[in-house]
Every structure is written in structure tokens, then in C-alpha cells.
Design a protein around this nucleic acid. Structure first.
Lengths: 334, 334
DNA sequence: GTGAAAGCGCTAACAA
DNA sequence: TTGTTAGCGCTTTCAC
């Protein structure tokens, strides 16, 4: 890489002259500016990012820590963050915590050495289960702001972007009741995390309010065979006529299983799930889905962080943005 | 963040003494080392990454440029890269080209300013279609090594990690012939990229060699409705008894469509696709898949790059690693 | 209009 | 054993 020094030498001027010329300073003569810019162009000069970061004490880089990159929702949020950050000239460094508290801590620690100006993160499951928040507080007190999304720690004072998880299942369940469904079951693999609990509560509330049936819940563990579990659940509970599937796969598997068992979807049974658009093509009929607008969540998180980095908005004034889900009605409901 | 300077001041020693003490230099007295380390611990001192990068002229950061983060295969490769890089203390900066040549160029340009030590990338579709390679050559000539994976430019002299795409469909097709299938069709949405072409050729070769039927190919455009296309393809070609699906969704849709049409899978028709493990649960029966070992591809790419960065392996000696696919036999074949 | 010098945080050659 | 100094590439104040 060419440096200012080399340009200066070749042009027989000082380094500061070159620097100023390239930064369009008023101080430098027209002629000089022209010569400098031409040579810089020729050599394809680019200011060294590292030197700039050191000088200005900011990196224009955001650390993004997510528990799982293979989770379509999280990948899409990451996409939103990247797009939004790029608009403002920010790069993103991605770390994957693999749902591990230790890895999450380590990533924070490793990047809190001047590598990034702030963090955007979704908590690891283990972090939520153990409810550890010291590492966040420490990071923030070091002057590195954090924006949390989706799975957040309510006890940490920072900007947050969350989904209306409770309302989403509450409304979806009520929607099935409005279709005259009577026995609506809830299926989930998300037992450990806040999001899963909220979705279950939304479902329960709708069931209780409606007062014609009891909650019927199938919890599936990560290691379980989801297809088998859902198949035997259907066989055991033959009166089910509606399904709210709280994770990204269960809804799809539920439809395929119902079809396999000879049930007509949506004639005999309605299904609502959280699948992404592309996955919703994985069933016939197509799955009615609750969309979380992952990209917008990512963009909002980036917005909040960049605002904080640039405006130095007060530490006390933390914002929580709620991104509302949308029920996209397709062919698996009436 | 605490700096050496502040520690030095508080300890009444020079900056270099502190630096050496923390780096376990032999030069410094035991007692001093102890005092220094204690204070550093107390203040939670971490060497400033940016300053180190500037000094050592390397960032321990890898730029990863991929066309699409929502593509499960690419996300998994990214995961592999991240895991492997982390082992060696490297961070990754991720940029998404969105299949656009312009964005790919821009990302390379933006990161080639000292932000990263090298690149790992999968070419944008547009780059492959237009066959542009100047930006790669330029980057490499600036001293920034590139490792390409999956979709590569053969005319660029650099390390590469590729999949045995040709063999994978060739073997899969032959496998279906060995099941006594006669009319095997090929479905793909990947017409523009090298990978898609290779897969098609592998299929064609197997068909021609077998010499009992003609190639039967359904090409689907990104904007098309995949379900409808596949549905009408089945209706038009009722003798099909085998499917090779070259992209990640077609295999799943093909099974569901076949089931919908009352065909028995695999009794009447066998299907092989490229789905990931989790997606292969999206059908009943489960899809027989060609696994690409995405994580290993990412890990290999990271290995190659880090080797080059550390050993300064000669520019001339470029390696191409082929990661072989595996046919995972499941329930959609006999 | 141009240049010298300081400083961002760190390491390392050299001096004491 | 410890300290001084230079330098990585850049911006910016201040002097000429």
C-alpha cells in the first residue's frame, strides 16, 4: 500500500501538504492539490484504515455477536445489520457464540480491545438461562455501547430491539379461534429462551380467555427427532384442529405430518408457524406464517447503535424498539 | 481503555518497561514484572488492537465476501471460516455482495485499505456471468491474498476450495440408474453460476453413458414460482421416476409435489437433492441428499489463507483443495 | 501556501 | 535492569 510519505517524497513536498491536499484543505494551492491528487490516483492511494482508527480513536466497525449463524432468522438480522451499517461506512465483525455463555464473554472481551466501537448482539441461550449480565455491564462501562435484539437482558441498561412475541402468538391463536377452531395446540423447541416463553404465554392467554379448551403443548428438545415427536403427538391427540408452531421448523413438519396422516390442511386442521418466506414453500399447502421482519430488526439495531456512536446520546436515555410481527395468511389456514 | 502510558505513570516506570514486563521479557526484574502485572490486572489492561495492527502491519483479520448470507450453504461455510479463524486468533469481517459485481468490487476496495490481511470469498453470480477478474488480480498484486471457494475464477492464480460438483450429480444419477430408474430429470435454479453448470454436466454425462433415455431438464428462474413450475413439470412428464435437484429447495418441493400428486416416494419416484440436514426434515419421507460439507469448506479456506499469511508461502505455489460431497441415503430413494 | 512537530498506543533497537 | 528513542500512517496545530 502506498503511504502519504511515499507520495510526499515523490512530489517533493511534505507529508502534511499531501494530507491536506487530499482532504481538500483550503490552505493548499490549487496547483499543488492537482498534482497530489493525480499522483494519488495513479498509485491508487487509500488512507490506511488502521492509522486513521488509531488517530481518531474509533474504528467505524461494529461487533455483532449472535448465537447461531445457521438460524435463518439470525442470519437475516445479520444481513439487515450489514446493509444498514454499510450505508454509514461501518464494517461488521461477526462472532458466533454457539449458544455458549463462555464464548459470548470471550467474544466481548476479545473485541473490547479497540477492535470495534460498539456491539449488536442476541444473547446465547446459556446466558439467558443463567441470567448472567456482568459482562455486559462491564463492556458498557468501558464506553462500548451495546444494542441487544430478540433475546435481550432486561436488567441491562442499553438500547434494545425486540419482537412482540407475546402478541404474535396471542393474535395467531385468536385468529384460529375466529376460524372456529376448538382444539389448538402449541408446539415449540424454544423452551430455554425468553422468546419461547413469551410465545407460549401469548398462546396460553388466548386459550384461557376463550375458555372452551385447555392448553395443549408439545415441547421438543433439540436432540429429539422432531418428525417422530410431532407424528406421535398427532396420533395421541386426534381432536387437534389447529397448530401454533413457535419455532422455524415445527410448522412445516406439522403440515407434512398432517398430510401424511391423511388430514386435509386447512380443511381439517389449520397451521401457523414462524418460517421464513423461502421455507414456507416447503409445504403444500403453503404455510401461514408469522413474519418477524428480521432485516428491519437488524437495520433498527444498527441505527440505534450508530446514533449512539455519533450523537453521543446520553447513557441514561436508552430506547427499546418493538418491531411488530405480521401474520401472513397463506394456504394452511382457512 | 487503560494504556501503557497510564500504567507507567502510576508505577513510576517507563512505558517500555511496562510493555516488556507484560510481554514476559527476560530483561525486566521479577519484582517489577509482578508489580506491573498486578496493576494491569487491576485495571483490566488489554493491548490496543489498532495500535498493534499499525505497528506490526497486520490486523489478524480476514475479510469474507459472500454473495448471500441467507443461503444456508454459504452461511455454513461462513460458520466454518469463523470457527477455524478463531482458533488462530483471527477475526472475520463479513461483507455481502448480494450477487452484484459492483458490490463485490466495492467490498474488496473498502477492505483493501489495511482493514484485513487477506480475503476469503465466493464470487457473485454477476461476476461469474461477466467473467470479470481484474479486481481480484489487483487485490492480490497489492499483497492481499485471496482464497476462493465454491464459485471460483479459474483464471485467477490463488488458493481455492471447491466441491466435486460434476462428480456429485454424475454419481447421484448413476445411483438412481442402479435403482432401475429409467427417466431421470434434472431440476435447477442455478443456471448462471459455474456450480450449476457443472452439476448439469455431471447429470448429462451419466444420462448419455447410460444410453436408455434423453436428458430431461427443468430450469427455474429466481423469480419464478418454484412450486408451480415443478407441479406442471410433473404433470407434463408423467414417466419421470427419478429427480436430481441441483439447488437447495427443489428437492424438497419435488417430494412434496409428488406426494400431492399421489405418487409414492420412493416407490414410484426417487428424489435426490442438495438440502442441508435440517431442511431434509422438511419432507416425509426424508430427502436423500448430497452433502457438501460446508463447514469443512470454510475451515479449509481459512486454513489455506492463514497458512499463506503466516508462512508467506510462495505466490507461485497455489493450491486447490477439492472437498468431496457425500451422498446421504435417506427415505426418498430405494 | 507550505512544512515541522506532536501525538494516537505500541514494540524494539539501542543506550545507559 | 531500566529508560530513551524512533517509527508504524495519519491528522492537525502552529510556525514560517
Amino acid at each position: 500500500m502506498v503511504t502519504l510519505k511515499q507520495l510526499a517524497k515523490e512530489l517533493n513536498v511534505s507529508i502534511s501538504t499531501v494530507s491536506k491536499a487530499l482532504n481538500n484543505s483550503e490552505e493548499i494551492g490549487e496547483e499543488t492539490v492537482k498534482r497530489v491528487k493525480e499522483l494519488a490516483e495513479l498509485y491508487n492511494y487509500k488512507p490506511n484504515k488502521v492509522a486513521l482508527s488509531l488517530k481518531q480513536n474509533k474504528t467505524k466497525t461494529i461487533g455483532v455477536i449472535i448465537p447461531d449463524i445457521l438460524n435463518h432468522f439470525l442470519a437475516k438480522v445479520l444481513f439487515g445489520v450489514e446493509r444498514e451499517a454499510a450505508k454509514y461506512g461501518y464494517n461488521i465483525i461477526t462472532c458466533i457464540s454457539n449458544e455458549s455463555l463462555e464464548q459470548e464473554k470471550e467474544s466481548l472481551r476479545l473485541l473490547a480491545n479497540g477492535s470495534v466501537d460498539g456491539f449488536i448482539m442476541c444473547l446465547a441461550e446459556e446466558t439467558q438461562v443463567k441470567n448472567e449480565i456482568d459482562h455486559f455491564k462491564k463492556t458498557i462501562s468501558q464506553g462500548l455501547p451495546i444494542v441487544m435484539f430478540d433475546r435481550v437482558a432486561h436488567d441491562v441498561l442499553c438500547d434494545k430491539v425486540i419482537v412482540d412475541d407475546f402478541d404474535s402468538t396471542y393474535n395467531a391463536t385468536k385468529f384460529l379461534f375466529s376460524e372456529k377452531r376448538k382444539n389448538i395446540a402449541f408446539i415449540s423447541t424454544l423452551d430455554g429462551i425468553s422468546v419461547g416463553k413469551l410465545r407460549e404465554r401469548g398462546y396460553r392467554k388466548a386459550i384461557l380467555e376463550n375458555n372452551i379448551s385447555e392448553p395443549l403443548i408439545l415441547k421438543i428438545k433439540k436432540k429429539d427427532d422432531q418428525q417422530k415427536k410431532i407424528m406421535s403427538f398427532f396420533k395421541k391427540n386426534t381432536t387437534i384442529d389447529g397448530i401454533i408452531a413457535a419455532d422455524s421448523a415445527s410448522g412445516i413438519i406439522a403440515i407434512n405430518t398432517a398430510v401424511k396422516l391423511g388430514l386435509k390442511v386447512p380443511k381439517n386442521i389449520s397451521v401457523i408457524g414462524y418460517a421464513s418466506k423461502s421455507d414456507s414453500y416447503h409445504t403444500i399447502p403453503q404455510l401461514t406464517t408469522i413474519r418477524q421482519h428480521a432485516k428491519e430488526i437488524g437495520a433498527s439495531a444498527a441505527q440505534l447503535l450508530i446514533n449512539r456512536l455519533q450523537n453521543k446520546s446520553s447513557d441514561m436515555d436508552v430506547k427499546t424498539k418493538i418491531v411488530k410481527t405480521t401474520l401472513i395468511k397463506s394456504k394452511s389456514t382457512l
